[in-house]
Amino acid sequence: MAPILSARHIRKSYGAFVALRDISLDIPHGERHALIGPNGAGKSTFIACLAGQLSGVEGQMLFKDENVAALPPAALARRGIGRTFQISRAFLQMTVLENLMAAHVIASGRWAALSRRIYGERIDRAHEMLVTVGLADRARDRVADLSLGDRKRLEFGMALVGEPELLLLDEPTAGMSIKERHGLMDMVAERLASEGRTLLFVEHDIDVVMKIAQRVTVMVRGAVLAVGTPEEIAANDEVQAVYLGGGH
C-alpha cells in the first residue's frame, strides 16, 4: 500500500547535540505503527518534527506526496495530521464539552467561529464523541478537575474531531494504570481501524505495542535500529540487547 507519510533523511540538532540522525520511515495508509526505544532515543523529537513544532529540521516529510516539512502545526492539522501531546494539553479552564466544541469549531473552517448555526449543529456530534471516549457524564466538568486518564481520553476525542488521516500520539498512556492503558488503546485502535485512519504512536508499554501495532520502529540514540512486525521486532537479537532485554 502507498505510504501516507514518507519521512526522508530527517535530521534535527540542538547545537552540538544531534537528536535525530538521518531518519527515514514510510507509514502506509491505514497502518498502526509504533515508535519504541529507550529514553532519549528521539521518539518524541521525531513526533514533534512531524507535527511541525520544531524549527531547523533537515530532510523531507512527504504527506500524501506533498512536502510538508516547513509547514506550521496549524497548517499540518488542516491537511489531516492530528496529534496528542506527551503531557496532556486540553484547555484546562474550559469544560469537557467546551474543549470538544473548540475542536469542532476549529475543524469547521476559518469562518465557523463567526457562526452560531455551525456551533449548534456540532453540539450533538460533540456529545457523541463524549460517549465514544467514555466521558458522557463529565461534559460539564472543568478539565482541570479530571483525572489524567480522562484528560488523555478527552485529548484523543479532540484529535479525532478533525478527522485526521494520520494521528500522532506521543505516549498516549503515560501515567495511566495498566487497565486504563489497554482500555484507551483498544478504543483508539478500534475507532481508527473502523475509519481506515493511520496511527503513529510512541509507547513504552510493550504489551500495548504488541497488541495494537501492525509494525514497529525501534529508535536508539536518534537513529532507526530496526523496523518490522511486532513478532519480528520481538525476535530481533539487537533490539533485545539494547531495549527489550534491558529491563522492560
Partner: peptide, 9 residues
C-alpha cells in the same frame, strides 16, 4: 494553550 489550539488547526 496556544500550542494545543494550533495542533487542532
Amino acid at each position: 494553550d496556544r500550542a494545543r489550539a494550533e495542533a487542532l488547526g
